[in-house]
Amino acid sequence: TDVTFHVNGRNLHLKGADEELLRRIEELIRRGADIEELEKAVKEWEK
């Protein structure tokens, strides 16, 4: 799945995201995470 999140005026584009990653990103956004936290979560998922 390709999806782009718009967070605090910045874009986080995910290519090939699975349901697990999407749920994790949505949860972080609900908690008020900043873009750096979201990018870190994506990097951890990519490993």
Rank of each mutant, 00 (worst) to 15 (best):
G32A: 03
L38I: 06
R24V: 10
E26T: 09
A17V: 11
D34M: 07
T4W: 06
T4F: 06
I25M: 07
E26R: 14
V42Q: 03
V3A: 06
L28P: 00
L38Y: 01
K43Y: 11
L28V: 02
D34L: 06
I29L: 06
E27Q: 10
V3H: 15
E26D: 06
D18L: 02
R30F: 09
V3M: 11
L14S: 00
E19T: 10
E44N: 11
A41N: 08
E46L: 09
K40N: 11
E39K: 06
E27W: 09
T1E: 10
T1L: 14
R24C: 09
A33K: 11
E46H: 09
D34E: 12
L28E: 04
L14V: 15
D18K: 06
L28C: 04
E39A: 05
E37A: 10
E44R: 08
G16L: 05
K15R: 10
N11L: 15
K40P: 01
E20D: 13
H6I: 15
A17P: 09
D34R: 06
K47D: 11
E37T: 09
R31A: 12
E36Y: 06
I29G: 01
I35Y: 15
H13Y: 09
K47L: 11
H13R: 06
A33R: 07
D34Y: 06
L22I: 15
K43C: 09
L21P: 00
R31V: 09
L38H: 00
L14Q: 00
E20V: 11
E46R: 09
L12Q: 00
R30H: 11
L12W: 09
W45H: 12
F5N: 14
E44Y: 08
R23Y: 08
N8Q: 05
H13G: 01
H6Q: 11
G32T: 03
R30D: 09
G16W: 05
R23L: 09
R23S: 08
A33V: 07
F5R: 14
V3P: 15
E46F: 10
A17I: 10
L21R: 01
R24G: 06
L22D: 00
L12I: 11
N8I: 01
K47F: 10
R23P: 01
L22W: 02
L12K: 00
A33H: 09
E36G: 07
D34F: 07
H13V: 15
D34V: 08
G16Y: 06
E37H: 08
E19Q: 10
E26Y: 09
I29H: 03
